[in-house]
Design a protein around this nucleic acid. Sequence first.
RNA 1: GUGCCCAUAGUUUAGUGGUAAAACUUCGGGUUGUGGUUCCGACGUCGAGGGUUCAAUUCCCUCUGGGCACCCCA
Length: 431
Amino acid sequence: MPKPTKSSKTEPLSSPKGMRDITDADYYKLQGLFEKAQEIAVYYGFKPIETPILEDERTFTTAIGIGTDVIDKEMYTLKTKGGDHLAMRPEHTAGLMRAYIEHGMQTQPQPLLFYHSGPVFRHDKPQRGRYRQFSQFDVDILGSEKSIIDALVIRTIYTILEESGAPNLVVTINSIGDKESRTAYLRELTAYYKKFLNDLPTIDRERLKTNPLRILDSKEEKTKEINQGAPDAVSFLSPTGKKHFKEVLEYLDEMNISYQIDKTLVRGLSYYTHTVFEIIEQYDDGTAVTIAGGGRYDYLGRQLGSKKDVPAMGGSLGMDRIVERPWFKNLAPRIMKKPKVYFIQVGWDAKLKSLTVIEILRKAHVPVIQSLSKDSLSAQLAVAEKSGAPYVIIFGQKEAMEKSVIIRNMESRSQDTVPIAELNTFLKQLK
RNA sequence: GUGCCCAUAGUUUAGUGGUAAAACUUCGGGUUGUGGUUCCGACGUCGAGGGUUCAAUUCCCUCUGGGCACCCCA
């Protein structure tokens, strides 16, 4: 029994901030998008996985990294009654890698292709298209360092967006290199900024300590000036890193996927190496909406305790954001049926048998809607009219006795009396 | 987490320092067997708490929730 708090007496209960109830059309949009994404992923050879919403907190702190906003400010954590420190997942990748290592998936033929979806949680300030609980659809490939793997992930996500109706898609892409080149680059970059320490705005001076790469896409005017002369990550890439990046771009060229190399793209999760990308919707007026992103994470496996390196690449798309975009095609989920008949019953004898008749219809796969709780014929006809169902079945006292129903065409208003035994065959010939 | 704006019925919105209105929706009825109509009725502690006042839905403060811009991200 929850203890009543001060607010529970006075404040009406509502869903937690930034979390929503999703019903009807909104629900089906998300489900429709999921089914489309799933279908595409399956065609490209991905297999499903579902991991727990809660994980040991350390899975995320070691994977995503202290010093990132996602960990420091946005993660929901809790202590169980047994004393375990768990966290609501803020993304899918760390849990996936944990599962891969835990179940020794390295022993299977590599690489392994996974798609993964479900709610993720970030304690962020809500805005339109940004929720504290939101759904991501991820594709990940674990166990290969090859550049074509990067291209395959980007291709798959890009295709899902395209098939959802997204226009003006651009892939922004960058390479932040491997451990060595990244360390060298970071050292150089930090040294560079230290020369301008006094000119750097407070926020960027702060970032110099926590995550210097972020200074590169600072919005501060002063910093933008300083950034003009900042060292460039790509020039620090090792020969293999350069080759890898070049190959990824070649694959994109070959597939006619338009991309822009964005040297300031570093992304907020610290496990990334080599390729990082975002897919944005870009408009002439300069506005851009990020709807997907990802990258390579070759060191994450070891960070989470794997004895061997697990080279891997993944990306995720924000389902809520996509579904709210004006261009989103309503992708009808398979479960959605256009109602074919509206069932009306009149009188007690008919009401008594009505569930049996509806079960006959269900077995014949006839989608039926009804308002069984209503009694009056005219009220039910009015609702039937509004529902847009092309046919109405009227089941009344007389029909209940005769074991028949009246089938009425809503458009022509003509009607036939059909014995219940012949109902299925009769309905089949209706279009 | 910071700044700005907002909050009246299920929804969209009026309105006022003297305890509230319209439209649509929903439910019930006029109408226990054939349609979109019409008529009648019901549904609000004016987001929550506190303050100013004889009196607050209205003015002030706090909180909660939402939107926008940062930050960050999907």
